[in-house]
Design a protein around this nucleic acid. Structure first.
Lengths: 202, 202, 202, 202
DNA sequence: CGTTAAGCGAGACGGTACGTCCTGTCTTCAT
DNA sequence: ATGAAGACAGGACGTACCGTCTCGCTTAACG
């Protein structure tokens, strides 16, 4: 995952410095938080900020994008299992985590900025999608399938479609609108809205 | 809209060449379609491709981002009014347009790429949001309000939230997943899904 | 001769700055005089000292050696004709100039340093030899030929060999020994020594 | 002389490998013969070529120049005594050795290249001068002094000057001109030329 | 005969320079 | 004043060496 690698290397020569590893990742986060902007973020500047030679960075990552990818992955914790009292509560939990993620101190603008950067670079995106997004998707789908089995969720709709019905609105808030658009209670409102439907019942 | 400006300038000396305007915008599109990538796209390269001096580009736009913004706006047509036989059909129409936009020849990857680039640059994003996205949003909201008045749409939900319930799923498809994820009939499926709700009726 | 070139260029675009030309050459001399040493002399450092972008240097010279070559040529004046009262005096004059050159303020160590650097780079040497050294050699040979015609110089020896008999000793002083080995009157002593021969006459 | 040192070291721990010594010196010669050029000759490259760690080189020599100095000294044999039938023959012998040295297989360009490199580095030069050149100079002077005593050489000239009269022309050939300028018989022609003088006798 | 200190190849470390490319400004001549 | 051309100072790119350092061995002399 991180640049130094944890495999069973032959371990000849001086081993890579874990301190340098940390210094570099921290430098990137510090610069991003300082509002440096994704493309004013230079390898040169990162090395300088980390107090590290350029070669030390390039020895670990082939370029800025690979480094950013790794930095982002350190910010994403793997999604823990959810198993509440009802499928409705589980759905709220899943969406609430998404909301928290979009608000967290370090993340807010930073996460949005970098994620968007990935989205505009197909190779980067695939990498990010396959490691981070897919896992969250699977979790949601498992919750939905449970609901379909228990009768809490309509069984006549595609799971994929259902998943997007729940995730999409939260994404729209985070992507299309601006900061401060993710108020508390949003997760409940979305889940209940989608569950009940937009057409009046009876 | 374009760099040349349409105000009441004094117009002394040689007037700006409209041909240069077009050459530059076309050069940008040509390069993007050629898959050049948003940051390999240099002002230097654009001028070269357009057969134009660098100063000629800078005279019209202050930088790459402003130029890109203008280029994108030429690709977006303003949303025409919708007024079908039912609110449900209008909603389908609105979402179908979004889908088409994500598929159109020139646009597909290009539009997604550039849009994502904007999203990771707050100032750019505000600009783009205020001119392009807000208009589409207003259109959707007007349809929803009509539905709430006629009783086709629940009146006890926030219009903003309702809007995101419909737009979000299409966005999720376009943003989170990959090409070829926007099949025909998707608009209907989303609209009907959201209208009916994910919980079984009765 | 200098980097900017004086040919009949098409003269399109902004012309090269003569000030930059001068700034660069002066910077090199300043650094060398400061005792920077031929290989601590970096293009980066030259540009910095000259207050000039690196590209501005590379636009004029392809590398450090070509630049040094040009700098040295600005220090060498073309050898003026000599025509004294006797061939003996002309020979003294030619050697005296060599001695002066090895002493001149800016030159002393500098000239020796750079010349030796050239000598250890075959391509550089050929260039330097063909432009600077050959001219001096021709001058000496013409003096000698005049002497052979007038009977002041033996006609049974090769002109090339004769030339080296006179130049060699001065070179040996300058090359093999150290500073302060080029005292006044040295030219006369060498010329007279070679003219009379090392074997006692009679 | 060589890097390993012969002093009375405490000699604790593993002694330095003589094989490494040789490997390094040979690597330098191999690279130079391969035409690598004095400044493309990197410590990194030398260690690589010698199949040796960089530290092993630095343990023996403080830098490239000290290493080169040692390498050159291994190529120079100390000048043997000369004692021919006449001083004239001894002078020819001394100069002939110089000529041979400038021609020898390994040496030719290599020796010229490295020597010139030394000349452009004052500290290096003093070192080289004091160990290699001074010895040759002393030999020549002793021959000349013998000649002055026997009447074969004028006694009214400075020995230093006389020495340069003989050595200089050979040096001029080797330094100023190019390869192939040191033909057989050159030593005799120089010695006889200087002995007889450039002015016609009688 | 086991300890032990220095040597060894390998290669990471913080730096500096390389030569190229792009940025945004400027200066030239021609329209 | 605008146009194409291109020079300008500045700065990042990714690579290569510098001279130092840390690894896990190996190797011989000493105790």
């Amino acid at each position: 995952m991180t640049g130094t690698g944890t495999g069973t290397r032959a371990a000849r020569g001086r081993p890579r410095s874990a301190a340098a590893d940390r210094a570099i990742v921290e430098a990137v986060l510090r610069l991003l938080e300082r509002g440096v902007g994704i493309d004013a973020l230079s390898m040169e500047g990162i090395a300088r900020e980390a107090g590290v030679g350029k070669a030390t960075v390039y020895r670990r990552w082939p370029g800025k994008d690979a480094l950013l990818l790794d930095v982002m992955r350190t910010l994403e914790e793997p999604p823990a299992e959810v198993r509440g009292t009802s499928v409705r509560d589980d759905l709220v939990e899943v969406l609430e985590r998404l909301r928290q993620r979009g608000l967290a101190k370090r993340n807010s603008a930073l996460l949005r900025t970098v994620t968007s950067h990935f989205r505009s670079h197909p190779r980067l995106w695939r990498e990010y999608h396959d490691t981070v997004i897919r896992a969250r998707r699977e979790l949601l789908h498992s919750v939905l399938r449970r609901g379909m089995a228990s009768g809490e969720i309509r069984a006549d709709l595609d799971v994929e479609l259902l998943g997007d019905l729940f995730v999409g609105p939260m994404l729209a808030r985070a992507m299309l609108h601006d900061e401060g658009e993710l108020p508390g209670g949003l997760a409940e409102r979305i889940v209940d809205g989608v569950l009940e439907g937009a057409r009046p019942r009876k």
